[in-house]
């Protein structure tokens, strides 16, 4: 394994001001200003500050902080820096360059946003995003992201478990798979004017995969509202699968009985299978998947790719007895 050397120009982790601390500092400065103006007691200023910090239940902020709780979903490796997470993206709807999404995704209107639910479920129809995700009950999960292009990141997502959202639609026993569809707007998504893929982007999971504890719907990262280039306002995160399974800017959820079409599988079936589980033993026909480039740290850093991206304990049982080379 490659152990990154601490370069003289890299500030050690301990030197970086934790986000909570600097935000707190802003609040103190702001409340100090209020104090000077109104002459309130420090005690009252304190309570003022508390009420400003607590979010009204269920409301969706357009940007900035998202109230959330932390969880045990942690990764030993350091987080990928925010500029890399939000500046190096595959979101072909905004262009094929890695910096295209950061440049052009701001054109996407994410408010209002609704999700259409179809197929084998008791509750179907069109739902406002605020009715699908409880914004007063968000959690943070730090997951590895492994792109099929053999690079990886570690990202602190904010969101809700996919299982809780899907269960709220009361899928029936005929719902054996779930398909997701990305928004398609030729005006706002300039990349869709060219058929890199057959738009709109579609992805899918087997129902047990979708209900797995790790499957997650993210509405934020690094404690803030999801930037558009990362799939705002809501995206899937399935950390044991290659990144392209984690579909962005979801507008439709379909409960189906047959294995649904997925975009990359349709584009190149021998390269991208339905399952797309991270698997170092199954090379992509055009490159090895044994190891991955770590984005955002030492430029030469590589790490060995792990089976199921290191999440075997949580997901391996779902594929017991399956040939994962055949069913790639």
């Amino acid at each position: 394994m490659f152990i990154p050397k601490q370069r003289p120009w890299q500030s050690p982790e301990a030197d970086v001001t934790p986000k909570g601390l600097y935000l707190n500092r802003r609040k103190i400065i702001a409340s100090g200003g209020a104090l000077a103006l109104t002459g309130l007691s420090a005690c009252e200023a304190q309570s003022d500050q508390d009420s400003a910090a607590s979010m009204p239940t269920g409301s969706r902020p357009a940007s900035g902080e998202l109230a959330h709780r932390t969880t045990d979903y942690q990764v030993a490796d350091p987080l990928t820096p925010y500029p890399a997470v939000t500046g190096y993206n595959n979101f072909y709807e905004f262009g094929i360059g890695k910096d295209d999404p950061a440049r052009y995704a701001s054109a996407l209107t994410t408010d209002p946003w609704s999700i259409e639910v179809e197929g084998h479920a008791a509750r179907t129809g069109r739902f406002a995003l605020e009715d699908v995700v409880d914004f007063s009950n968000l959690e943070e999960r730090i997951y590895r992201l492994r792109c099929v292009e053999a690079w990886s990141m570690v990202i602190p997502w904010i969101g809700v478990s996919l299982a809780s959202v899907l269960a709220s639609f009361e899928p029936t026993s005929d719902a054996r798979y779930v398909q997701f569809v990305t928004d398609l707007d030729r005006d706002e998504m300039r990349g869709t004017r060219f058929p890199v893929l057959n738009w709109p982007y579609v992805e899918g999971l087997r129902m047990d995969e979708a209900m797995n504890e790790l499957a997650f719907l993210a509405v934020g990262l690094y404690g803030e509202v999801l930037p558009n280039q990362n799939g705002a306002p809501i995206r899937l995160v399935v950390p044991w699968k290659y990144g392209y399974k984690s579909i962005k800017s979801i507008v439709k959820i379909r409960f189906v009985s047959e294995e649904p079409e997925t975009s990359w599988n349709r584009s190149a079936p021998h390269e991208y299978g339905f399952y797309s589980n991270v698997n170092p033993n199954r090379a992509h026909p055009r490159w090895s998947q044994r190891s991955e480039r770590v984005i955002g740290g030492n430029v030469f850093a590589r790490r060995d790719t792990e089976m199921f991206n290191g999440y075997s304990e949580q997901v391996a049982h779902m594929y017991a007895g399956m040939d994962l080379i055949e069913n790639h």
């Binding site: 890399a84 500046g87 190096y88 890695k98 292009e149 984005i295 430029v299």
Partner: peptide
């Protein structure tokens, strides 16, 4: 100017 994946 090499971006976040300079080798690529």
């Amino acid at each position: 100017g090499l971006g976040f994946n300079p080798i690529e």
